[in-house]
Nucleic acid binder design. Structure first.
Length: 330
DNA sequence: TAGGAGGAGATAG
DNA sequence: CTATCTCCTCCTA
């Protein structure tokens, strides 16, 4: 994606780009595309560069300072991601002395967190979409799901129609120019996003989840949302088979408040009472998950109501709009 | 006008 | 056959 001497910006949304609580950074690919790490033994992305380090001098950057603390970095508001002028030389300057070592370690930590978050996001998307993490394994249907998801994630106009009848292998064999040919405006974004997925798949192969859990990537899940991650993993273990049921899907969203609290959230977790805050968003997510592009809240709510007589979901004692209750809370 | 309740036929796995 | 999906009517806030 990067032409020589003209490195490209690779936006990576950590969490969800539409939400204020999103921690978002832009990965800067320096010279080599991230795919080039496929053959690398070490588990770091060469050239991954955090442009926010440019914008905020490290000693004045609270976000950077918080890296050393045990909790999550503060959110970077959506919209601050505009590619800042690339300054590769600055990123590549060898740090000097103790200060330089601290800075380097800090950068390493950030990189590790970013990569860990990317892997987590890819994992989450895989589970929500029910597709393999490795694009090479995707069927045409999986490719369409991934495209719909990417459209949704980056708020792209409909691009999935431009990539019909393509398997994941077809997609992976395409050069950036081929992507641009199909979509002159967003081909590069799709290419970059696919690149992230391919890199993540390669990385997962090099470093299985068990290793990641106990290894360096633990930094991320420990620091950012350990409880979330555990419950999420638990949920996925509980429902390994397909197809997923709507109530399970809703519960999954509820168990990822970091990503989805803007569209669905607990009002009373103990009692299993939740509220759908953004009907269109939840319906769209469900539609993507079930490959039903025409899904809307009207239909989704009808499906929820089917659970009334099955005793899975009901309206709370005090009925309120968009508020439902799991009959058997977790 | 959006959301809620529920009937009923269609559809996918 | 089950679990929705889809379309529908009627009701309510």
């Amino acid at each position: 994606m990067a032409s020589p001497g003209c490195a490209a910006h690779l936006p990576v949304f950590i969490g969800h780009p539409h939400h204020g609580d999103t921690r978002m950074v832009s990965l800067y690919e320096d010279i080599k595309p991230s795919r080039s790490l496929l053959g690398l033994p070490e588990l770091s992305w060469p050239g991954v560069y955090i442009p926010c380090c440019d914008r905020f001098p490290i000693q004045e950057n609270p976000w950077m300072l918080r890296m050393a603390e045990p909790h999550a970095p503060a959110a970077l508001p959506y919209g601050t991601l505009e590619p800042s002028p690339a300054k590769p030389s600055q990123a590549q300057d060898p740090p000097c002395g103790m200060e330089g070592q601290v800075e380097e370690r800090c950068l390493e930590q950030v990189q590790t967190m970013v990569v860990g978050e990317v892997l987590k996001d890819v994992d989450t998307a895989c589970k929500l979409l029910n597709i393999a993490s490795d694009p090479l394994d995707w069927s045409c249907v999986h490719v369409q799901k991934w495209l719909l998801w990417t459209e949704h994630l980056y708020r792209l106009p409909q691009v999935s129609t431009l990539f019909q009848e393509l398997t994941g292998r077809d997609l992976c064999s395409m050069a950036e120019a081929d992507f641009r040919q199909r979509s002159s405006q967003f081909g590069d974004v799709l290419y970059a996003h696919l690149d992230i997925w391919r890199s993540a798949a390669a990385m997962k192969e090099l470093c299985p989840p068990a290793d990641r859990k106990s290894g360096k990537f633990n930094l991320v899940s420990e620091n950012l949302s350990a409880a979330d991650d555990d419950s999420w993993t638990e949920v996925m273990r509980s429902y390994p088979s397909q197809p997923i049921h709507l109530w399970q899907f809703l519960r999954e969203l509820l168990l990822k408040p970091h990503n989805y609290s803007r569209c669905i959230r607990w009002l009373n977790k103990e009692k299993g009472i939740f509220k759908i805050e953004d009907t269109a968003h939840v319906a769209r997510l469900w539609g993507i998950r079930k490959n039903r592009p025409a899904m809307n809240y009207d239909k989704l709510s009808r499906s929820i109501r089917q659970y009334y007589k099955k005793g899975i979901i009901r309206k709370p004692d005090v009925s309120r709009r968009l508020v439902y209750q799991f009959v058997n809370p977790v």
